[in-house]
Simulated scan of single mutants.
Amino acid sequence: MSASIQKYDVIVIGAGAAGLMCASVAGQRGRHVALLDHGGLPGRKILISGGGRCNFTNIHCEPNRFLSGNPHFAKSALALYTASHFLELVHKYNIPYHEKTLGQLFCDHSAHAILNLLLAECERGKVEHVPDAHSIRVEKNSSGFRIASARGEFQCESLVIATGGLSIPKLGATGFGYELAQQFGMSVVAPRPALVPVLLGGVEAEWTQLAGVSTLVRVSTPSAKTTFVEKLLVTHRGLSGPAILQISSYWQPGQPIHVDLAPEQSILTPLFGTRRDGAILRQALREHLPQRLAEHLANVAAPAGWSNAAIEAGERALHHWPFNPVGTEGFAKAEVTTGGIDTRHLQAKTMEARDIPGLFFIGEVVDVTGHLGGFNFQWAWSSAVAAGRAV
């Protein structure tokens, strides 16, 4: 081996949330750790998350809030390192935070507080950060792994891949983690954009004239066993808002998204009176929905005639309105990537590859995707700690 090769106990590739956390845990265990990243700055995705305030976890973090080919896989890591554990770190660094809604915890001020916490924890572990380490190539050898990069050559006993998914390529997202897994004979569940706005086309494109309208809805899609009650937002290109972002992770091309426009409410009851006409319809819709949305529905969803049966059918339609997206905004606007390293190749308690000792995969690169609201950060922390204690 060349004397120029830099030797470490552990090398973590990817300086995002999971990579920083794992490096800090391993370093504080006394392991000699290097953190390689193809970019110049760590934690770029952390800084833009949560509107710049970082929705760093969720107090209702249960395994059923995650999508995976194996819905049980995430249980071990999530039990090992919970939201309460990460909150202990937040309190240790005196970071003020608040619950926004539905258990979502945000920094009061800036996401920089979470990044600074992680950097401080890495410093405690004497982690060596190696930025701009692009053009990475990995080989397995008798001593572990040999890594060649633009910043030189490295050797390690344990290698952790924390390179994330394909979402937000402008921040440097690549398919490196998937390619490396395949290099070692591991399969990858096809990556798809998740937590992403959807696009409307054809006749449904008329809805985009309501851009800016937001309302509370319940959404569902045939491939999801769950529904979400949150806000929907009409955009210039289609639909967004928390409800749509949530259901987008489950939505499959060709499927409809069904929207209950007024959950738990009866909208058209006034039409069962003696007067049944468009004016009463508009008034009934305005009592429950934003005015622009009410006007649109008055034009496109008026009962076919004013019989009791027609009104009842109109009521049902408003609670099961189908949209047929022509696609999504893609990885450029997706908050996360669903799919990834097939969990059948990994040990749930340590995140180590079953057939390649010393090789670990953590965070978004794995086929575990959380709901909107801090769950993906918690998966980053939990999977990182599982690996960091095992390397």
Score class of each variant (00 low, 15 high):
262 A>F: 15
176 F>D: 13
82 T>I: 07
3 A>T: 12
75 K>R: 14
69 G>H: 11
259 V>R: 00
154 F>K: 10
72 H>E: 05
120 A>C: 06
375 F>C: 09
298 A>S: 11
44 R>V: 01
5 I>C: 08
28 Q>T: 11
363 G>H: 02
233 L>V: 03
308 N>R: 03
142 S>A: 10
31 R>N: 10
274 T>K: 10
178 Y>F: 08
249 S>N: 11
382 S>Y: 11
56 F>N: 08
337 T>D: 12
72 H>Y: 04
386 A>M: 05
192 R>Y: 06
292 R>C: 01
293 L>N: 12
281 L>C: 08
300 V>R: 07
243 A>P: 03
256 P>S: 02
269 T>S: 14
357 P>D: 04
323 F>L: 02
199 L>Y: 00
268 L>Y: 08
377 F>M: 06
277 D>F: 00
36 L>I: 11
345 H>N: 06
231 K>P: 02
82 T>F: 06
70 N>I: 03
131 P>E: 00
27 G>F: 15
32 H>C: 15
11 I>G: 12
51 G>W: 03
30 G>W: 02
84 S>G: 09
215 T>C: 15
76 S>F: 00
237 R>P: 00
136 I>Y: 01
162 A>C: 14
310 A>D: 13
171 L>Y: 14
329 E>A: 03
319 H>Q: 13
67 L>V: 15
207 W>L: 08
266 S>L: 06
332 A>S: 06
163 T>V: 14
167 S>A: 08
368 V>I: 13
191 P>Q: 12
121 E>K: 04
110 S>H: 15
14 G>T: 13
137 R>E: 05
318 L>W: 04
357 P>Y: 04
12 V>R: 09
135 S>M: 03
189 V>N: 13
86 F>Y: 11
190 A>S: 13
242 P>M: 14
31 R>D: 05
118 L>Q: 13
34 A>L: 06
28 Q>M: 09
38 H>M: 07
339 G>P: 06
